[in-house]
Amino acid sequence: MNVLVVDDSGVMRKIIARSLGALGVNSIEEAGDGREALEVFGDGSRFDLVITDWNMPEMNGLELSKQIRADGSKVPIMMVTTESEKDSVLKAIQAGVNDYLVKPFDNEMLKLKLNRLIKIEA
């Protein structure tokens, strides 16, 4: 399983990567904002999952998700953010986000969400 983790906070990328590692996911690529993520993502064929923050410089996670969908990729996208308002969740879903994880989170919650996304992908 290859996961792209997108967050402008290096610490948060490490937190997510560490959590993924604990769940047996060891192939992780990182990007610091949406624009960089699109470059890393390419045609998306090598990724099984994208985990992205919402608020980032250059291009935010919402725009990134829209662009990934506009390019035709069906890769599962999980938004990890402090934005927990109903309107924000709706906007994310409309942008093509498959699941939503609110910060702060623990490994159990991330595991539940990952299992759900893997099933979606299958």
């Binding site: 906070s9 610490v11 934005e83 910060k103 702060p104």
Partner: peptide
Amino acid sequence: EQVIDAVAEIANMIVGAAKC
């Protein structure tokens, strides 16, 4: 630097969660 980044993230999460 890692500790400083981590503390920045603590503040980001606390204020972000309160904002919501």
